[in-house]
């Protein structure tokens, strides 16, 4: 029992989960309640299936990308182009679909799979392009992805004439399938988020490539001396980052029923913030897929808190900015305490 407790308390995710639960408790206690029109019962403004699912759904779109971003950040890199990759995958896929299925309300068998394949494929291709440019040109990833951030969005803008493109309703039916949950609860994006986070966690902690990602970020030279294929590892992390942008784009496009070139503008900052709040270190060698998802949930929860507690919406950016800085500083402090413990075991 004691041992189990110390494992939980010592785990990387404990602090984040604690903060999320604390904030959730505060919202439940101080959020007030309203009368449900259908049943006439009083319902808590925060603690109800619809609101909770809404928080998780909004988080899922950037949480999925935060898993890819975490891998990039572990290698000391950065991917500023994820928001634009998202927009590009969505727009190109929506355009292809509108050619294939001109009337959106008609039954479109197979449209879901076509859309999924296209979105993921385009995201992956955009990520591969980033990876090849970074390794071939030897230019800092900040610069390359800053460039492709504009290029990808620009391509989407030009091709779509900045118009919003509707997608077949069968996609929306897929993304909003209730799957037998409570009234008004649509869990598909959240389930996708959980799958991506767990897959990312397994990949990072158990696979050869995952271990090598940590090695490259921890010490590039020593990795090279150990026969780690550095360039291949770097291409892989940017490809995965692009792929996660494609997954997010597919889900969001299906969920909202349309795509346009202005989608996910500025999302890269939410994604980076989620990864960093989740403990990924820009200095490299450190990060977790599960924590990145929790980081995204925390940010989404803060946005919800502003609505539930009826705080003036204008304060949202200030509050999120403070939260990011506080989270990272707390993480540093706990790391220092941890390393002091390590040095005591020094031989």
């Amino acid at each position: 029992m004691r041992r189990a407790l110390s494992v939980i308390l010592g785990s990387q995710q404990f602090g984040l989960v604690a903060v999320i639960l604390l904030l959730g408790t505060i919202l439940t206690l101080f959020g007030g309640s309203h009368e449900d029109r259908a049943t006439g019962q009083m319902v808590n403004n925060f603690l109800n299936p619809q609101t909770l699912m809404q928080v998780a759904t909004f988080a899922s779109f950037f949480a999925i990308m935060a898993v890819g971003m975490t891998m990039v950040i572990i290698t000391t890199g950065i991917d500023l182009s994820v928001g634009s990759t998202y927009a590009l995958s969505g727009v190109l896929t929506a355009m292809a679909l509108s050619k294939m299925y001109p009337i959106v309300t008609q039954p479109a068998p197979g449209a879901v799979w076509v859309a999924m394949g296209l979105c993921l494929g385009i995201g992956l291709a955009a990520g591969l392009l980033n990876g090849f440019l970074i390794t071939a040109l030897g230019v800092h990833p900040f610069i390359i992805t800053l460039g492709t951030m504009w290029i990808f969005r620009g391509v989407a803008f030009v091709l779509s004439n900045a118009l919003s493109i509707l997608v077949p309703t069968s996609l929306t039916q897929f993304a909003k399938a209730p799957l037998g949950f409570a009234q008004g609860v649509t869990p598909v994006p959240v389930i996708a988020m959980l799958i991506v986070a767990v897959a990312g966690w397994l990949f990072l902690t158990r696979s050869v490539t995952g271990r090598r990602i940590f090695a490259v970020g921890g010490n590039l030279t020593a990795s090279q001396y150990s026969g780690v294929p550095i360039k291949r590892i770097l291409v892989i992390v940017y490809a995965v980052s692009g792929l996660t942008a494609g997954i997010a784009a597919f889900l969001a496009m299906s969920y909202f029923g349309s795509a346009q070139s202005a989608d996910a503008q500025g999302y890269e900052l939410y994604v980076i913030a989620s990864a960093v709040v989740g403990g990924a270190s820009l200095a490299g060698g450190k990060g977790s897929a599960i924590s990145a998802m929790l980081g995204a949930l925390l940010i989404s929860l803060i946005q919800q808190a502003i609505r539930t507690l009826k705080i003036n919406q204008e304060y949202e950016w200030i509050i999120i900015g403070c939260a990011i800085i506080i989270a990272v500083v707390l993480d540093r402090v706990s790391a220092r305490v941890g390393s002091a413990r390590l040095t005591q075991g020094r031989i």
């Binding site: 158990r206 050869v208 090695a215 921890g218 001396y225």
Partner: peptide
């Protein structure tokens, strides 16, 4: 420190780093 070890990793992870392909099945360690 610069060329030999990834200091952020454990002794085990450093020892196995060059041998990972030999220690894995289907890409997983």
């Amino acid at each position: 420190k610069r060329q030999g070890l990834v200091l952020g990793m454990t002794a085990r992870e450093n020892i196995s780093l060059p041998s990972l392909p030999r220690l894995s099945k289907a890409g997983f360690i």
